[in-house]
């Protein structure tokens, strides 16, 4: 299980994360919601090692992640899909996917081939367009590619930063349901960040509401959906 305790991350004078503690159950989706600037991305980036926390700790089962490098954290089975459909648009679709598994090429060549096949099965459109540059994909396809890049690493913990951003509701729902199925079938643990809470909370086990770098609610997802007063106060809808 992912355990975050008393995490503080600062930028110059801003405390983007101010004493955050929560846990994410293995094999489940935990959704983090919050308004723009609440610190959601900073939270994911601190877990994946892109930002260094000032204090606090992050553990994944028995493993201490807090001061590890990004590369080491990826090797511990944590994969992040950063905000904004992060694919490398000048590389082809196939190259983007290959990139995600490159670090395992020597130890686990066979499994890498299977993992690649798996993501192509999950997103057949990517297989069709595997030779095209990633920049030519639509927004939804790019998000699929970004997720695939993370999945070929065979992560145990997937960090998804606003996968719905800028996508049509239908497509974002489709992507989230694929993630949900993946969770159920493979036991993947997911930390899903969203601003638009409804679809994301619907598939989640647990919901965490962030505001100004603090956890203001940490509830079972159903209760968070139901609590319209809380949502109105922090999200404005």
């Amino acid at each position: 299980m992912l355990k975050v305790s008393n995490l503080v991350t600062e930028f110059a004078s801003i405390k983007a994360l101010n004493d955050i503690s929560f846990q994410a159950k293995p094999g489940r989706i935990t959704t983090v919601i919050g308004a723009n600037g609440a610190g959601k991305s900073t939270l994911l980036r601190t877990i994946s090692g892109l930002e260094r926390p000032t204090s606090g700790s992050i553990t994944w089962f028995d493993e201490e992640l807090t001061d590890k490098s990004v590369e080491a954290i990826v090797r511990s089975g944590v994969a992040q899909v950063p905000e904004g459909h992060a694919v490398i648009s000048q590389l082809s679709v196939a190259e983007n996917i290959e990139l995600g598994g490159l670090f395992r090429k020597r130890q686990a060549r066979g499994d890498l081939e299977i993992a690649t096949k798996d993501v192509y099965e999950l997103f057949p459109i990517l297989f069709e367009r595997r030779r095209e540059p990633a920049g030519s994909l639509s927004g939804g396809e790019r998000q699929m590619l970004a997720i695939s890049r993370a999945l070929v690493a065979r992560p145990k913990l997937l960090l998804l930063d606003e996968p719905s951003l800028g996508l049509a509701p239908l497509i974002s729902a489709q992507i989230i349901s694929i993630v949900d199925e993946l969770c159920k079938s493979t036991g993947l643990t997911v930390l899903l960040v969203e601003q638009n809470a409804n679809t994301a909370l619907a598939v989640a086990d647990h919901g965490i509401l962030l505001a100004l770098g603090k956890v203001v609610a940490d509830l079972p997802a159903k209760e968070l959906i139901a609590d319209s007063a809380l949502r109105a106060a922090y999200l404005g809808y």
Binding site: S48, L50, V70, E71, V74, R75, A79, Q80, P82, A86, V87, I88, Q90, L91, E95, E98, L99, G100, L102, F103, R104, K105, R149, A150, A153
Partner: peptide, 23 residues
Amino acid sequence: TGMGLAMRASALNPEVTRLSGIR
């Protein structure tokens, strides 16, 4: 080659490349 891909990727987008586990 994989190393060549890693080099191109890290020139184009170091962050995504690091998140792919590449040093």
